[in-house]
Amino acid sequence: MRHWSIATLAAALALGGHGAMAGNSGTAPAAAPASTPAQEALADQLSQAGVKYYGSWRCPACHYQGRLFGQSAMERLPYVECAKPNALPQQAQACRAAEIEAFPTWIHPSGERRIGVQSLNELQRWIQQP
């Protein structure tokens, strides 16, 4: 059974309702806008901090999270795809090992998790904590 956080549900509903959550909306997600230098820098900082971002190609909230970063920054994120076990078996195994139950899930090297869409400011503050 898939568990949805309130933030994930809200993003899914905002992006197309119940069909989008189930992956049956029939429409492709909108392309992410161009990234700013600040968005790219944050993606690099998250990667350097050892944070992992777990998601699914069919998750509306993950698409929304990606749009917050923009196209080039999204490509720099430390992303692990959980829903393509045949194409990406090592990533799917990493998701199982991390016990990912909701998308998106962010995991800090300390083990702390953030579940659901995170604002860029929240992520910035999170990696700057002592």
Rank of each mutant, 00 (worst) to 15 (best):
T105R: 02
H18T: 10
R58H: 14
I107F: 00
Q93T: 13
R96T: 15
F103L: 07
R96I: 10
E101W: 05
Q93W: 04
I115C: 05
D44W: 01
A14L: 08
A31D: 14
Y54W: 11
P60C: 09
P109G: 13
S47V: 01
P130G: 09
K52G: 02
F103G: 02
G17E: 04
G116P: 06
A31W: 00
L77G: 02
L68Y: 06
A98D: 11
L120Y: 03
I100H: 06
T8M: 06
Q71K: 15
A83R: 00
T105Q: 09
S56D: 10
M74P: 00
A97I: 12
A73L: 07
P33Q: 06
E75Q: 15
Q39H: 11
Q65V: 04
G19L: 11
A12S: 15
Q71W: 04
A98S: 12
S25W: 03
S110L: 08
A38E: 15
E99F: 01
G17D: 04
A94T: 05
S5M: 08
P104W: 11
S25E: 07
Q124H: 13
G16R: 12
R125V: 07
T36K: 10
H18S: 07
Q71C: 00
R58D: 13
G23P: 06
N24D: 11
A7V: 01
I115Y: 01
G116A: 04
Q93P: 02
P37Q: 05
I100F: 07
T8K: 00
S5Y: 02
Y64Q: 08
R58S: 15
E81T: 14
L68P: 05
C95G: 09
Y79E: 03
C59I: 05
I6N: 02
Q124M: 03
L9N: 01
A34Q: 13
N24E: 13
Q118D: 10
N121T: 13
G50M: 12
P85T: 11
Q90H: 12
G19C: 00
M1N: 04
P60N: 06
A28I: 02
A92H: 14
E101A: 13
R76A: 06
Q118C: 12
G26F: 11
T105E: 10
C95P: 09
L46N: 04
A92N: 08
A20Q: 07
A20T: 06
A83L: 10
T36C: 09
S119G: 15
C95F: 11
Q118T: 03
A22Y: 02
E40T: 07
G55N: 05
P33S: 07
T27A: 11
